[in-house]
Computed example of a mutant assay.
Amino acid sequence: MLAGRLGKALLLTAAVAVSTAGAASAAEKIKVGALRLASHAPSFIAFERGYFADQGLDVEFEYFQAAQPMAVAIASGDVDFGITAISGGLINLAEKGAVKVIGGALSEEEGIPGQKILVSKKAYEEGVTAPSFLKGHSFGITQTGSSFHYMAHKIAEKEGIPASEIPLKPLQKVGAVIGALKSGQIDAWAIVPNIAETLVQSGEVMEIGQVADYIPGYQVTTVFTSAKIASENKDLVKRFLAAFSKGAADFNAALVDKSAGEDEAEAVLQLIHKYVSADQPFEKVAPAIRSGAMRINGDAALNLESVKDQLAWFQSEKMVSDTITIDMLVDPSFVETY
């Protein structure tokens, strides 16, 4: 009798072990596009804390240095999900039925430090001490049709400066823009606060304004995937967004709302540092990440009105077709929109 029970127990243990091993091996492999910026922290947190694994996802990161190449990678199927700014390239791919925006990520929010408008020390000394003095001065962007292009024109529009009178300098990569600004090869740029603060601290760059004063409520980055995944694998999208949202909640609680306590803030900063400026000492990087933390939308909610404004601007600049609609660009069925 005892031997029989023992045998059954051993068989049950073996079955559980096999089942667990099978579940682990069945984790769905996906690639997630990212930039090594603090604004991508929710993905890093979700990975490090097992939130993706909890959703049955085996994540591999694919790193990019600009938004448009990530959109191309999503469309080609080389990457499954991306988190980055809306670009002309992304919109054109959406019109072709290749990609869909499925949620929101980084956003400008009143009362929280947001993206900074910067100028080189040389330009500042020449009198560019406020955005109103940008006329005739160069502005760095990664590519034509990037979010930097959009910001430059929105700043010019509000200041009453013809967009053509702020020369744009496409430099392809964020690192190249940073180098050009520090050396005075370009006059101005706008970027997330943790990078901006590090540059200002170098003494070679000056802050002259905030993007939020020119684009209130700006949905800076969005979550997107291929149109095929959005339509044919909705469960995968839901699982990805659930894990990403959990990472965003940790980030916001630790560094934006500061409701999680100092120990948690320190833990989150240590985690982010593994992916952001890992070649620099933690003591140097952490203060800028902490003070420059921007809101990541809870539950990946999407500011649809901001996305509509961005689409309208790209159309006004003739970078995308007038025939593309917001429904071609966005699938609003996965998250709350406002």
Rank of each mutant, 00 (worst) to 15 (best):
Q280Y: 09
A41G: 02
K100N: 09
K158L: 01
Y214A: 00
F240R: 06
S132G: 07
S146I: 09
A21Q: 12
L304A: 04
G82C: 05
T84D: 15
A242W: 09
N92S: 14
K154T: 01
E108M: 03
S316Y: 00
P113W: 00
V330N: 03
L57V: 07
Q115A: 15
A130Q: 12
A176D: 14
S132T: 04
G88I: 06
A67Q: 12
H273W: 08
F282W: 05
V220I: 11
T337G: 02
K29H: 12
L106Y: 06
V177E: 04
L106H: 00
L241P: 04
E28T: 14
T225P: 06
T142A: 04
A212F: 11
V119G: 03
Q315H: 10
I296A: 00
F282M: 03
E204P: 05
E159D: 09
I296C: 05
A163M: 08
E197Q: 13
T13E: 11
A286G: 03
V18F: 09
A94V: 10
S333F: 00
W189Q: 09
G140D: 01
F133P: 01
A73R: 04
S39Y: 08
K121F: 12
F148Q: 06
Y338N: 14
A9S: 14
G261E: 11
A188Y: 03
A176C: 07
F133G: 01
I112T: 13
L271R: 00
K308Q: 13
E207W: 04
T337Q: 01
V72N: 13
K121I: 12
V256L: 07
V237F: 10
A293L: 10
A248L: 03
V79G: 06
A75G: 09
E60Y: 04
A46G: 13
G179S: 07
V220T: 08
G127Y: 13
